[in-house]
Write a protein that binds this DNA or RNA. Structure first.
Lengths: 339, 339
DNA sequence: CAAACTTTGGCAATCGGTTGTCATTTAGAT
DNA sequence: ATCTAAATGACAACCGATTGCCAAAGTTTG
């Protein structure tokens, strides 16, 4: 008995314990478990049985250290309390789990610095990352993508695989909806200046408005939180518009609350359209007309694209860009223009 | 020049690169960076300068493997799309980040099996875990707590440090509120049978009801989702009560929607009280009377308790149980009993 | 100026796996 | 029966840090 401890105390079993139990080398155990075809079936079965008996669980740290693969994928969101990300996160989580990966979820607090440092941090502890609504510059993002596999969501940078949500087309639908209700003075309540989706939505909107000969003015920017809705509502009222298209549902819902406080009726005096169809959009008062899209699916697609990058085996031309459809869901917050 | 590669390609720098650059041993670099007082100040400064110059970032995998500490804490939630957990998650995230830890967030999908396997998985990749609303048995939880530092939230098991939310006392407040409005036939819409908080709330409630001489019946169980609210509403109407106390806000909001569909007015025909004061409770229609508590703070406290377990240095008697206060927030969903 | 003690930093083992290399066994082909 | 090729499994280096041990250098004290 030269072995250090015949009956290991309580320390989790390692491949060495299995090797000792089976009378083979540790490397054989490793192969039996990760490349079964490299090991004789009889040896393999003995090893697998021993592993099961010992309740062996591979140490992911050690595995990552020697193989370079961590089996984890980072998911960066700007604000974990924004309901928009719930479904997205659930989508990524489900898809990652199905593929045997672990999700590392990080809230970057809407800060480009936190985002950048998180990426650096994750560089060695994740195999790839999904970055949602990045606040970084195109250059920074491109540089980061060169260092590790990456897929963006809601952010289009040439050269970086992305999942985009086709809000521009839905924005046009929303505009037509409002025009058909007789509105001619409309406001766009902008999101953060660093948000690419806000910028793009505005350019689509102003272009479409020009074509249709209606006036759309841009107000804001507003932080994507319900609290900002109060300022947004006041700005809208002051500007004299009869309808608003908000950057997202949080702002829209905040506006609803503020307008109610001020005694301004929705939709009789003012129509509001949100974006994202988040949790709550269907039960606020009045229920919010909003642009909906399959967010959970977007999360799943993003992960699929990332995993395709990580395991380029099955081929099948890696898509580098995927656009999720969007449609306008009309509820109670939009109605005929006053007067 | 015996060194393998004078100008390292692009591979992230390691302590060996720093050591080579400074002409010291790797172990000295390690010490200079983690136990600075063990290294001469001049050497240390040279090393630190070199580390900065090389943009050195320690490899957390390697660190974890050799030190046994991972610098990560797992946070298990049953359903990431339940808004109740948003604030909790944010609280844990903030507190962990402040202490230099990484948060590993996992959605256990309301399943005890996923919960158990996740714990096993995390055993080697996290230093401790925060378990919210566990679906496991007391024994399983106790056994798991013996294997790794753990703090539960909303789950009380003797021997396991816990953060509890004092909903029982708020439940009594809610009951008194309803009684003062003239209600005498009241229902409790129960949550999952495996939920300890639902069970405890019911026992407090039925006891208090008896003392006060009013009738409170238990309906359900209902899944903690808005979709379950429809069934809950129908059950409440059928049972002839005039007021309901729901297990949580999701169920309560679902009831609100269903009652509206059925043309039953809230609060004129039926009063509803929720629990948790989640996102949406203030802007649903009518705004929900609910039991509120500082959820984000609960997350922070849970992490503090866990970290105290991990670093028993500063002493200060580790609290093993912390109760968060709760109060009833009265909004528009409760009113005088009909008739 | 020597003895005793403290500081400092190098060596090497270790954490738990992965993986390239190579010798040996086994099987198939001729 | 002989030769070749394939299958198998052991050895050892390695991933990037941490840490116990120890020797060399420096400092203080008598």
């Amino acid at each position: 008995m030269v072995t250090t401890q015949p009956a290991a105390v309580d320390r989790p079993p390692t491949i060495h314990d299995i090797a000792a139990l089976c009378g083979v080398a540790a490397s054989t155990v490793s192969r039996a478990l990760s490349t079964p075809e490299r090991v004789n079936i009889r040896t393999r079965q003995r090893i697998q049985a021993a592993a099961a008996q010992l309740h062996y669980i591979p140490n992911s740290q050690a595995k990552a250290l020697s193989s370079g693969r961590t089996g984890a994928v980072g998911v960066l969101v700007p604000d974990i309390t924004n309901p928009f990300y719930f479904d997205l996160i659930r989508g990524t989580q489900l898809q990652l789990k199905a593929a045997g990966y672990t999700q590392l979820l990080v809230d970057t607090e809407e800060s480009d610095e936190v985002e950048a440092s998180t990426m650096e941090q994750l560089r060695k502890s994740a195999d790839g990352i999904v970055v949602t609504a990045s606040r970084l510059s195109d250059e920074a993002l491109l540089a980061a993508a060169a260092k590790m596999p990456m897929v963006t969501v809601n952010r289009d940078v040439p050269g970086v695989p992305a999942v985009l949500i086709d809000t521009p087309s839905a924005t046009t639908q929303a505009l037509d909806h409002l025009i058909s209700l007789g509105h001619t003075r409309i406001a766009y309540m902008a999101g953060p200046v660093t948000s690419q989706s806000s910028t793009r939505r505005w350019s689509t909107l102003s272009e479409a408005a020009e074509e249709r000969g209606v006036e759309v003015r841009r107000l804001g920017p507003f932080a994507p939180k319900t609290q900002s809705g109060a300022a947004a509502a006041d700005a809208a009222v002051h500007s004299g518009v009869t309808a608003c298209i908000a950057f997202n549902d949080l702002i829209a819902i905040g506006m609803l609350q503020r307008l109610r406080e001020r005694g301004i009726r929705v939709p009789e005096d003012m129509s509001i359209v949100g974006c994202d169809d988040i949790f709550g959009a269907d039960f606020c008062n009045p229920p919010l007309s909003t642009m909906a899209s399959p967010i959970e699916q977007a999360g799943r697609v993003a992960v699929s694209m990332l995993l395709a990058q990580l395991n380029p085996l099955a081929g099948g031309g890696t898509r580098s860009r995927s656009v999720m459809p969007t449609h306008l869901t009309v509820r109670g917050s939009t109605g005929a223009a006053p007067g």
